[in-house]
């Protein structure tokens, strides 16, 4: 008895040793900064002078700041790419799941934009969106459409960014769907066919429910990622676009914090964004739970 407890204690000591690094990392680079961000958001923190406590002033200002609302609207608008990407990716994955020749080649091709550096991709698309000589407008000219100056136009800059985001993320979503589709037993479809179900019914009653967990995963990760969009904006529209129409929340936070040194104010915005992401994720989990319950 004593021997086992001694062995157990040795094991425990080693276990704590092995998890020490990530745990310290968590404390130093996540917990302490988070607490400090919360503290800082209640002050007039500017990185130089004293941090004076100003109560809820920053948060009040956030919700009266038209630029914050604009950035929030832009960020949400650009999330329209998420459903577009999901539908396209599911269609592509269903096509790839038929076992046609060239499947692995297609998989690789669609995945190349995913692994490509977002900075290089943004530079490339900025050039592709060039009003006079860009690839996009030259392509549109072939079918007789005169394309706009995409990134300089308030009504086209966000769609332009959405198209690029869908293009870049499509391969990742498609791959997740393909993996999910491949795990659906073929017998389900055979049974449905024997029962006289057509292709659309099979899709509705078998495919969609079977890929639901992956869809949930994709939606949650895409919203978390989409809420933090920054690099594309910074590279393609360094000033936040015409009339600030492509500035995202993180872009605005970055400008306020590292351009104007309004660190307290920027921290308050970052916390609002964090809370927003948290609530959206929570709602997603609740919806997911409820639907799974309905299915039983």
């Amino acid at each position: 008895m004593k021997a086992t407890s001694k062995l157990y204690r040795t094991e425990e000591r080693y276990a704590y040793l092995f998890i020490a690094a990530p745990f310290l990392g968590f404390l130093i680079f996540a917990l302490v900064p988070l607490v400090y961000a919360i503290y800082g958001s209640f002050t007039d923190w500017n990185g130089l002078g004293q941090m004076n406590f100003i109560g809820l002033e920053n948060f009040k200002n956030v919700f009266q700041d038209e630029y914050f609302y604009k950035a929030m609207y832009n960020t949400l608008f650009m999330m329209l790419g998420i459903p577009i990407g999901i539908v396209l990716a599911l269609l592509l994955a269903m096509g790839l799941n038929r076992g046609i020749p060239g499947t692995s080649t297609f998989r690789v091709i669609y995945y190349i934009p995913v692994i490509s550096s977002i900075a290089a991709i943004s530079i490339l698309w900025q050039w592709a969106y060039n009003g006079d000589y860009g690839l996009v407008n030259q392509f549109l000219a072939l079918i007789g459409i005169e394309g706009p100056n995409w990134l300089q136009n308030t009504s086209t800059v966000k769609p332009a960014l959405i198209i690029m985001a869908v293009w870049k993320g499509l391969g990742y979503t498609m791959l997740l769907y393909l993996a999910a589709l491949q795990s659906v037993p073929k017998s389900y479809y055979e049974a449905a066919k024997l029962d006289g179900a057509n292709a659309l019914q099979a899709f509705w009653h078998i495919t969609l429910p079977m890929v639901k967990p992956v869809t949930f995963f994709i939606i949650v990760t895409n919203i978390i990622g989409g809420a933090q969009i920054f690099t594309e904006i910074n590279v393609m529209t360094p000033t936040g676009g015409p009339e600030y129409s492509s500035a995202s929340v993180v872009f605005y936070i970055w400008q306020k914090a590292f351009g104007n040194f309004q660190l307290g104010y920027a921290s308050a915005m970052a916390l609002v964004l964090g809370l927003f992401i948290f609530i959206i994720t929570l709602i997603q989990f609740k919806i997911n739970e409820k639907n799974s319950f309905d299915m039983d």
Partner: peptide, 21 residues
């Protein structure tokens, strides 16, 4: 669970204090 919960904290919320640190 505690460790993994920190994944939920978006980087923008941490970047300012980290930078000052």
């Amino acid at each position: 669970i505690l460790l993994f919960a920190s994944v939920m904290i978006p980087y923008p919320a941490l970047m300012i204090p980290q930078f000052m640190m």
